[in-house]
C-alpha cells in the first residue's frame, strides 16, 4: 500500500523536527497510538489500537528513525505485529521550511500488510490511512498552536 501526502504546518522546520523526535509528543498526537517507549536512541516500542470495520486489533512493535538529516528529512521504519496481521512500513519524511512560521511536511512510503488485515478491507485501507494522516496533521497543528 502506497502512503503519500503533504501538509503545511505553522512552524519553523527546526521546531517541527524537535517535536517529531519526541516520543511522548508523537504518542499523544498519532491516532491509535496508546504508548511509545524509548528502547535506545532512535528506536522506540509503540503500542497502538486500530479498528477498521470488523477488523480490530492491538498492535505492538518497533518504530525506528533512520537516515536523519536534521532538520530536513528522516525515515520512519515501522514494524508492528498483531493477532490480525502485521504491518511493515518505511516512510520518508521531508520538512521544507517555507518561511520562519510555516513549513511543508511531505511523506512518501510503502506499507506491507499481512494476515486478516491484508485480506479484509485492504482496498479501503488507503482511505483509512488518508484519514489517519489528516488527523495526525490536524493534531500536530493544534498542538503547535497551543504551544505558541
Amino acid at each position: 500500500m502506497e502512503l503519500t501526502g503533504n501538509h503545511d504546518i505553522s512552524a519553523a522546520a527546526q521546531t517541527l523536527w524537535n517535536l517529531l523526535m519526541d516520543p511522548d509528543f508523537l504518542a499523544r498526537i498519532t491516532p491509535g497510538i496508546t504508548r511509545m517507549e524509548k528502547i535506545s536512541d532512535d528506536n522506540y516500542l509503540a503500542i497502538a489500537d486500530v479498528k477498521i470495520g470488523p477488523v480490530k486489533g492491538s498492535f505492538k512493535g518497533e518504530v525506528q528513525i533512520t537516515e536523519k538529516q536534521e532538520p530536513e528529512a528522516f525515515t520512519l521504519m515501522v514494524q508492528q505485529k498483531s493477532s490480525i496481521g502485521n504491518v511493515a512500513a518505511s516512510v520518508r519524511i521531508r520538512i521544507q521550511e517555507l518561511s520562519p512560521e510555516k513549513s511543508n511536511i511531505q511523506f512518501e512510503g510503502k506499507a506491507q500488510l499481512s494476515g486478516l488485515l491484508a485480506r479484509t478491507g485492504q482496498r479501503v485501507l488507503s482511505g483509512v490511512a488518508n484519514t489517519l494522516s489528516r488527523q495526525f496533521f490536524e493534531s500536530l497543528e493544534a498542538e503547535i498552536k497551543q504551544q505558541v
Binding site: M1, P54, L113, S114, A118, R119, T120, Q122, R123
Partner: peptide
C-alpha cells in the same frame, strides 16, 4: 493478490 502474496479480498465484504 498484492505483491506480498496476500489475498486482498479474503472476506465476504471484499
Amino acid at each position: 493478490y498484492d505483491d506480498g502474496g496476500n489475498l486482498i479480498n479474503g472476506s465476504y465484504m471484499d
